Computed example of a mutant assay.
Amino acid sequence: MSTTEVESLAKLRRLLADGSSVCDLRLQDLDLTEVETELLGIDDFTGVVVLGGRMSDDLHRHLRLHGALVFPADPGVPFDAWRSRLYRPRELYAGLHEHGYDATPDARAYHWSLEPDQDVYSSLLRAIHDDSISDALGEFVDGRTLVGVMGGHAVQRGSADYTAAANLGHSLASAGAVVATGGGPGAMEAANLGALCTDPALLAPAIEQLATVPSFRPDITAWARVAFEVRDNVTADTGAPRSLGIPTWFYGHEPPNAFANRMAKFFSNALREDILLRVCNGGIIVLPGAAGTVQEIFQVATALYYADSARNVLPPLVLVGEQYWSTQVPVWDVLQALAADRPMAGAIHLVGDVETACSTIADIASAQECTHRPTEGGKAP
């Protein structure tokens, strides 16, 4: 059986206009009220699966009576389990300016996830949502180079570490990469901000304005409001995306930042962490951080340790802060011990500053491009 996913009304309208059979379509997250007249005129929906979206009661009955399997959206939960696209920060923060953070979809989804009477249906909705977001993220990543920036959530706005992370994000995005972070506050926010800001002259004033509310504690509302004010000043949502956040409601006490072009937010932190590290095909830069950052380092290290370099180019893992990662949190010695006599040894790097980290990523990307570029005779050099 051949199926076709339809995630936009434009595609569905084209299929209906040219008289194509609708049998075996997968209609995901569509407002079917927009094409209700056309659908009511069809009497064979064999194999059609409708995943969420909007429809009238009449259309719902018509689809089911003529062979469709309908999974309606649940208006009783504060998220769309069948969502077909990544979030934008303003969607997660809808209602922030009028009613404060606790009224936003982001906060309501987090509080829903904490409800004590969760049952198997709730688990199913979470799993469907996360799979839908994973699918949308796969479509977003396709054809793009993503460089991950990892670092601590406690880095305060206006600090030297925050400014360094913002400059790093700007440099990576200006070189053509999409900057991917965990989507939260601190170093993650700074890197997403730097990537989003296309004009470097606007970056320092943006950081200065953000520093008026240096942390999301104790007031997330004030922290987020100033972020959206800054976002409006530094760029518009036009052009190719430069910034991606992949946060989780598992750490719902850490709000998502406002500076990613797109947000892939998950309920499952285990799934989110695996996906975040896996999509960074251009490498990962790790800034100083605590336990969560160390966990991410060794998740990457595990993948590098077992990778088959004959079949896969190993993306670089670049740690920033020679003293920090050698003495304060001494993971570098462990990485070197693991990498001894393995291809992984060529993929791990310890550097002193973000400028060197950025140039290391660029040099490796350039070398890989030269290695795989066909020569005049059609063979790689």
Rank of each mutant, 00 (worst) to 15 (best):
R126H: 14
E34P: 03
F250W: 11
A301M: 10
V318H: 02
T33E: 14
R342Y: 02
A17R: 05
P374G: 02
F267E: 09
A291H: 10
F250M: 06
L350Y: 06
A136M: 05
V141Y: 01
K265Y: 09
D237E: 15
A190T: 00
T371Y: 04
A177C: 10
A347R: 06
A10S: 14
Y101E: 08
A10R: 13
V35Q: 10
I348W: 05
E34G: 05
I297A: 03
A164D: 15
R64Y: 06
P288I: 01
S134V: 10
W332E: 11
A222Q: 09
R262I: 09
V234I: 15
L146D: 01
A337N: 12
I284A: 00
D333Y: 03
G194R: 01
N269A: 11
T104F: 01
I285M: 07
S326V: 02
T198E: 13
G19F: 09
G352M: 09
D106W: 14
P256E: 11
A160C: 00
A165N: 00
L338D: 12
G52Y: 05
A222C: 05
V213T: 12
T371D: 07
E376N: 08
P200I: 15
H66T: 08
D74M: 11
W249Q: 01
N261I: 03
L168Y: 05
L210S: 02
T198P: 01
A175G: 15
A227D: 08
A165C: 00
C197T: 13
V77C: 10
D161E: 15
G321A: 07
A290M: 10
L172F: 14
G292K: 07
F298L: 12
A103F: 04
G138K: 05
H99Q: 13
F266N: 14
E273C: 01
G245Y: 06
M263W: 09
G245W: 11
E376V: 13
G19H: 04
A303R: 14
R83K: 09
A73Q: 14
A240G: 05
L314Q: 02
R14F: 14
I207K: 01
L271Y: 11
T293Q: 02
R90K: 04
H97R: 08
I275Q: 12
S326P: 01
L114T: 10
V300G: 04
L203S: 02
A10Q: 11
L125H: 13
S84W: 11
W249M: 08
V294M: 15
G100C: 09
L30H: 08
T33L: 12
R144M: 07
D119V: 15
S309R: 04
S56K: 06
S366T: 14
Y101W: 15
P185Y: 13
V147E: 06
G53I: 10
A291S: 12
I220E: 04
A94P: 00
G352L: 07
E229V: 15
H349R: 07
R88D: 14
F79K: 00
R342G: 04
M188A: 13
W325A: 07
A227I: 07
V320C: 02
D80V: 07
P256K: 03
L172Q: 01
V351L: 07
K265R: 13
